[in-house]
Amino acid sequence: MSAEIYKRVRANPRFSELEGKRSRFAYLLTAIVMLTYYGMMMLVAFAPEVLRTPISEGSMLTIGVPIGATIIIGSWLLTGWFVNRSNGEFDQLNNEIIREASK
Rank of each mutant, 00 (worst) to 15 (best):
A47K: 14
A3T: 10
P54T: 02
V65C: 01
V65I: 15
T70F: 11
P48M: 02
V50P: 03
S16C: 05
G80E: 08
A69F: 11
D91N: 10
G64K: 02
M40S: 03
V65L: 14
D91S: 07
M40A: 12
G64E: 03
L35V: 10
F82A: 05
A31F: 14
A101W: 00
S16M: 08
E96P: 01
Y37E: 13
T70E: 04
E19P: 00
I32C: 04
E19M: 13
F90W: 11
A45K: 14
Y6R: 15
L77A: 15
L43Y: 07
R85Y: 06
L51T: 01
W76Q: 11
A47S: 13
N84T: 10
V65E: 12
V50W: 05
G64Y: 01
L93P: 00
A69N: 06
W76T: 08
A101K: 03
S56K: 09
F90I: 01
Y27A: 13
T30Y: 12
S86R: 07
N84A: 14
S23W: 09
S23I: 09
I98E: 08
L29T: 09
R85C: 00
R24V: 09
D91F: 01
M1W: 15
M40Q: 11
I5T: 14
V9L: 04
P48V: 01
P54I: 05
E49V: 08
V33C: 08
Q92W: 03
F90K: 02
T70I: 09
F46I: 04
M60D: 13
M42I: 12
S23G: 08
M34P: 00
F82Y: 13
E57T: 14
L18M: 04
A26K: 07
N95P: 00
G68C: 04
W81L: 12
W76S: 07
A26W: 05
I5L: 06
G88Y: 06
L28A: 14
V9G: 07
A47L: 11
G68T: 09
P66F: 02
V50F: 07
L43N: 07
F15C: 03
N95I: 07
A26T: 13
